[in-house]
């Protein structure tokens, strides 16, 4: 053993790795996708003549956005900032007002009987409504439901909604359902 093997010059491997790194940086996307999750109602069957589902008048609140982005809840115009409180009162009906939604005792598995509101929010929009206004309203509706869920969780589990287990979240979801229906499109603004 007279000669030592010379060390391989490895300074360029870093460059190669940088090249790869740059390639991945350029071709990939990062960042999580955020958004509002919704479930569309299935298309009604063509053969089956759908009579309008008779929902009791008091159980439904119609939120309308017209082509100039004005919001109507029920029949009167309302500001976006007031919408959340209005929906919260509508869904929770704390005073048992006969003009607000009725409640139904439902046996929730793992929790027991609870009076669940039968309120449905029906969201209607015009073809000329801007998407921004639509999302803003959707956001307010979700916020109302989320706040109610949080209040329910605080009252019954003593924690915030985000910090309870998944099973418990399911209970809360059943107790405070998110019934937002995106109505069949109709031209509300054509008059």
């Amino acid at each position: 053993m007279s000669k030592k093997t010379p060390a391989i010059n490895s300074s360029s491997t870093a460059d190669i790795a940088f090249l790869l790194l740059c390639y991945f940086l350029m071709t990939t996307t990062m960042g999580t996708q955020m958004g509002l999750s919704r479930r569309l109602p299935p298309m009604p069957d063509k053969d089956q003549k759908v009579e309008d589902q008779k929902v009791n008048q008091r159980n439904i609140i119609i939120v309308r956005i017209n082509s100039s982005d004005r919001i109507f809840a029920g029949s009167e115009p309302i500001e976006l900032s007031q919408l959340k409180d209005k929906v919260k009162i509508f869904l929770s009906n704390p005073t048992g007002d006969p003009s607000l939604p009725e409640k139904e005792e439902i046996d929730i598995k793992g929790f027991g009987k609870y009076a669940v509101s039968k309120g449905v929010i029906s969201l209607q929009n015009d073809r000329g409504t801007s998407y921004q206004a639509y999302i803003a309203v959707q956001n307010e509706l979700v916020k109302a439901v989320n706040e109610l869920r949080n209040e329910f969780t605080m009252a019954h589990f003593g924690k915030r909604y985000e910090s309870i287990s998944e099973d418990q979240q399911d209970i809360v979801k059943k107790a405070v359902p998110q019934n937002i229906s995106e109505a069949e499109p109709k031209n509300v603004g054509k008059k």
Binding site: Q33, G35, L36, S37, R38, R39, L40, P41, P42, M43, N125, D126, R127, G128, T129, S130, Y131, Y134, I135, Q138, E182, P185
Partner: peptide, 22 residues
């Protein structure tokens, strides 16, 4: 405008892709 989005939504309902996210 919502018109185009409503069209898309109707089309999605027709092909029963009901889970959507805005």
């Amino acid at each position: 405008r919502m018109g185009i989005i409503t069209d898309v939504k109707q089309e999605l309902r027709r092909c029963s892709a009901l889970k959507i996210m805005y």
